[in-house]
Design a protein around this nucleic acid. Sequence first.
DNA 1: TCTTAATTACTAAGTTTTTCGTTTCCGAGC
DNA 2: GCTCGGAAACGAAAAACTTAGTAATTAAGA
Lengths: 124, 124
Amino acid sequence: MTNLHLTQRELDIMSVLWELGEATVNELRDKVDKNLAYTSVSTMVRTLEMKGYVSHRRGEGKTHIYFATIDSEKAGESVLGRVLDKIYGGSPIKLLAHLVDQNRLSEKELARMRDLLKRPTKRR
Amino acid sequence: MTNLHLTQRELDIMSVLWELGEATVNELRDKVDKNLAYTSVSTMVRTLEMKGYVSHRRGEGKTHIYFATIDSEKAGESVLGRVLDKIYGGSPIKLLAHLVDQNRLSEKELARMRDLLKRPTKRR
DNA sequence: TCTTAATTACTAAGTTTTTCGTTTCCGAGC
DNA sequence: GCTCGGAAACGAAAAACTTAGTAATTAAGA
């Protein structure tokens, strides 16, 4: 519930970890920005670890393999909430309208999404 | 189309302008953060004006009354896109699922939202 | 054991964002 | 016109974020 804050770069890194499951510093750098110095990425991911958003295990040799300890849902809570609030004046309808406008959605996706809106009671 | 970038604080201010339509520096400060120094808000809104996101007219006396010159849709484009990409792995379905989970939506809202998903072709 | 190559740990510089003190301006009332 | 008070403009300090250089560490191989 506590207000999880991620900076832009931190989000870049978390995003890769969520996508890949786990990654070494080199893998992170490849995905985030190949031009970044190795140590830059290393520093950042260690900072995230200090904040408690990331942890690591020992890989082959001495390399650390990092993985997220918070899930994207957790991050989505605060970020999406903020976007909803600040940009769409708290209206989920407006937000959805945008989402639909900006992405070319297939009929299949649309159907799936309509389905999500079917039951106000718990689904999943 | 150019990639509109707003910092956190800048977004705070734009948000108030979108909500109120227009506002003086004092009104902005009240809404954004009452503890901020007057000059802090003043500087920021003038920066936004320089960037072309805000303009002003003359009010009573010498006070400036500011208003947004870009709409929230414009801002939503880049921000929502980023959220979708970084947090929901590009899946609008996941994003919507979250939106539904986190907000207690009325049946009326749900219906309206389902409606938005009806026609893949232009609506509005 | 010693050397090497690669990785982590540490420290700090560079950059951007946020904040505010000071000065300048301007209208209102004397 | 002169002074007062509130607001805008300016300049720059403070804080936060990003990046990377250097040192320490470690595993592997000679």
